[in-house]
Amino acid sequence: MNIFRLFGDLSHLAAIAILLLKIWKTRSCAGVSGKTQLLFAVCFITRYIDLFLHFVSLYNTEKVMKLIYISASVFTCYLIFFKFKATYDGNHDSMRAEFLIVPAAGLACLINTKFDAIEILWTFSIYLEAVAILPQLFLISKTGEAETITSHYLFAQGSYRALYILNWIYRYHYESHVDTIAIVAGVVQTILYCDFFYLYITKVVKGQKIVLPA
């Protein structure tokens, strides 16, 4: 474990917590893409499938973190699609999730480290996570704005994988550890946030709201 990975995981936890708090406190999921949250839930379940296969006692933080990610993301989907369904902005959350899931699944079968069920599920979850934020970014571009709290969520969510890139550089240098698939997907994922990062740093940090030219 290194400082980049630690802060990356903390940033990821913060993102999940910020979104849950936003929905719970405002009792509304306006401006939140339910599809992105569904895709994240699928990512966690397919990536941490080992938790269900051979349940080992919760002796280490990694198992606890995996369970937190899975339960928090499923609970977030429950809030969006059931509890606060009336506030879900389905009209603007219109990016076809199939256009992300099918290519990720196909690519996972073609490009993977080992043609093994668990490994392909892991690879699928890595590819899917790289593009899972697209419906959320698409929704913001459609509505032309993002609530400040949603911007903080996106900043934390984007920073998590950006910090993981620093973690991979660190591990390559000191542990000569390389996980090419995760690195390439992680770089693509972070690049997708670039224009949001620009808007966040130039606007939200100065207390302005993100309003896109509609």
Binding site: R5, K66, K114, Y164, N167
Partner: peptide
Amino acid sequence: PEPVPDHDEL
């Protein structure tokens, strides 16, 4: 058989 990579990250 070659070892399946241990993806030790979350």
